[in-house]
Design a binder for these strands. Structure first.
Lengths: 344, 344
DNA sequence: TTGAAAGCGGTACCAA
DNA sequence: TTGGTACCGCTTTCAA
């Protein structure tokens, strides 16, 4: 651009953001080559660099506040250490939070970079594409988005060495840890039948995104001999619970199995406000063994699904990444256990 | 490698993973140049490509299952659209989950890629470096990790155009949305004093990672004239609550302000099991206005901190990214409001 | 012990 | 309307 004339500047080009320091800048400042910088900062074993040089490089990097560019690095390397964890943040409870924590911790210990990718409102195809763009070495789908075989293929073609699904159903091509939600429903219904109940209302959340869990729980309950099951839609609100409790009498039911302990709590409260006694007039059962269940009076009977530890899952991921073919596509089933308390 | 001899293969080199398709592969298959592929797939406005060519390219991409490489793209572009959301998954409740959902949704609508980065167990420095490697255009710290001015500088030098903090304290260099946790404590104590209580026990969680919130809440309560405040450590468990309830009589207190509604619920339950009447013998106050607070009997009085909507925060981020200098470093304060119910 | 240079995948300028 | 090509930042042979 010519310096002789001074064209009117646009309104606010205040300061062109200062350029991000690169390894070339570090090299220049330290008076060495970019190669040397790379060797020093990565503690390359295969090459001996003199101590004075190392110091110079380290100081230069420090002075400039140099941080390597992950994208450039992985582009060159041809692969990443990213483990992608899709999340769609349904309020799924502290049990799940704790598990996520463990998992992230363990994966970081294995030198993976855990990236949670919010996929709320994306279709399976859109989500899979978006994830594939990041070239993750592994994807762990916790069942919050329904993944098709085609989606799994997309991810694998994009270099994913492992795709694990933890959810109600297994997906072709992926290593599946099947949480059999149907078993949760079955255990609950069996318990209620044992307690002499026959006509069971199963509370199904109206909230979107929970069908993957709630539908199999309902079906599981239906599959139990001796149980007559009625599906009861209910939202996670006091109003909805109150409405359900009010028409309860006309339903002719003697037990309720709620989607989880939180829905059970809402409903039990509403029952009590209606003057219904738990468990005499109506038995109430929850699921997931949340802490609140033990604090309620009567204490809430529940069904707990054993989760794998985060560490175990992290190990599974790592194994699959190292030897994708060695890991035969097992279906690890997680057991559901009944915890009888006072509400049934 | 020679084909004439057959050297013993290493145990399991089963199939070298098939290479990930690149835009060059698409170009080859479509019989065009890489440039053309780029134009077509990005719907470049500045260039007119014939319809037949477009179709050829699209079909080739489809056939190969081509997905662009985000790292390569952003390397070339010199910037990303990544908004980094550090998470350390303390079980912080549905209020927060909902907010995160809104935020992610709104940011995606603004064409940002939201990446949650699990930073559990990292120091501020380690975390800032790890984040900086991803070259996010913006970072939104929800206060789960204490960010120093130096950390903010690291991020900015790495190209972050906006660093927002939402938390109890403002950080130099960052645009801060200050959630004044002290105000929460103050509101609670004021309310209790109004109700004629003087000696207030403030429940402080023993769980790590909550100090950033709990300490200011305690101090806020201390600052209220007429209130004598005693700090009471308690873990999020029935046992801990029961132990506290047992020694309550010896403490000479007439009210409890718990860290949040969940801790309040635990404690209230333990009080009742000890035969203490709420609110006659002891007033109990929670915080955060969780749903459970309304389900308890007596209904739990609480203090609610108004969160900004996810959409508003997303807008703030976008504005800061577009015009970093235009956004003067405001301190947006979020108000705390008291919700008196039956437990006080 | 250190440096020069190629190349990872994609974009955009300049020519044709 | 399309193709050739330089370049983004980093790692890693290969030479010196």
């Amino acid at each position: 651009m010519s310096q002789s004339s001074k064209p009117p500047k646009p309104p606010t080009p205040p300061s062109p953001p200062p350029p991000v320091p690169t390894s070339a800048d570090v090299a220049r400042l330290a008076g060495v080559s970019r190669a040397t910088v790379s060797y020093v900062l990565n503690n390359a074993e295969a090459v001996r660099i003199s101590e004075p040089t190392r110091r110079k490089v380290r100081e230069a990097a420090e002075e400039l506040g140099y941080v390597p560019h992950a994208a450039a690095r992985s582009l060159r390397a041809g692969h990443t250490r990213i483990v992608l964890l899709p999340t769609s943040h349904v309020p799924v409870g502290p049990l799940y939070s704790t598990f996520l924590n463990e998992l992230q911790w363990a994966l970081r210990g294995l030198d993976y970079t855990v990236v949670q990718y919010g996929s709320l409102g994306l279709s399976g195809d859109e989500a899979a594409r978006a994830w594939a763009e990041l070239r993750p070495v592994a994807v762990i789908s916790l069942g919050e988005i329904a993944l098709s075989a085609h989606n799994v293929a997309t991810l694998k073609r994009a270099g994913a060495r492992a795709v694990l699904t933890v959810g109600p159903q297994s997906v072709p091509g992926a290593h599946a840890l099947v949480m059999d939600q149907a078993e949760v429903g079955a255990r609950a219904a069996e318990h209620l039948v044992e307690r002499g109940r026959r006509r069971i209302g199963v509370v199904v959340p109206e909230e979107a995104g929970l069908e993957l869990f709630s539908a199999p729980r309902l079906e599981g309950a239906r599959s139990v001999p001796g149980a007559e099951v009625v599906a009861l839609p209910m939202a996670y609100s006091e109003e909805s619970a109150a409405a359900l409790a009010q028409r309860w009498g006309s339903l002719g039911l003697d037990a309720a199995f709620a989607y989880n302990d939180e829905y059970a709590m809402l409903l039990m409260r509403a029952f009590q406000d209606e003057g219904l006694r738990v468990p005499q007039d109506v038995a109430v059962m929850g699921a997931d063994d949340l802490l609140i269940g033990r604090l309620l009076r009567p204490r809430l009977s529940t069904v707990r699904l054993e989760m794998p530890t985060g560490e175990r899952l992290a190990g599974l991921v790592d194994q699959a990444v190292r030897e994708p073919s060695a890991v035969v596509r097992r279906h690890d089933l997680m057991a559901a256990v009944t915890l009888p308390r006072d509400s049934t």
